[in-house]
């Protein structure tokens, strides 16, 4: 079980690896598309890497609901619970 802070930090590393964005830019209230300029293909790569890192399953139909970084952190946190 990871804390929300740990999930955010892990997610930020994944986003950095995929897009080159600084990890500090990946904040809870940031929108993946509007703020971080992440396209759908990068988003799927991030999702799959997050699944492996956190040992959870994020169904494809759920991905469109993950609008902000916080949405993803909360989903992963709940899925781990």
């Amino acid at each position: 079980m990871a804390s929300n802070e740990e999930i955010l930090a892990g997610l930020a590393e994944i986003v950095n690896e995929e897009t080159g964005l600084a990890t500090e830019a990946v904040e809870m209230d940031k929108s993946f598309t509007e703020d971080l300029d992440i396209d759908s293909i990068s988003m799927m790569t991030i999702v799959v890497n997050a699944e492996e890192k956190f040992g959870v399953r994020i169904p494809d139909e759920e991905v469109k609901n993950l609008k902000t970084v916080g949405d993803a952190v909360n989903f992963i946190s709940n899925a781990q619970a």
Partner: peptide, 11 residues
């Protein structure tokens, strides 16, 4: 083959 279809990258 090693990790399954989910891990095949979208790119």
């Amino acid at each position: 083959r090693e990790k399954g279809p989910r891990r095949v990258l979208p790119m």
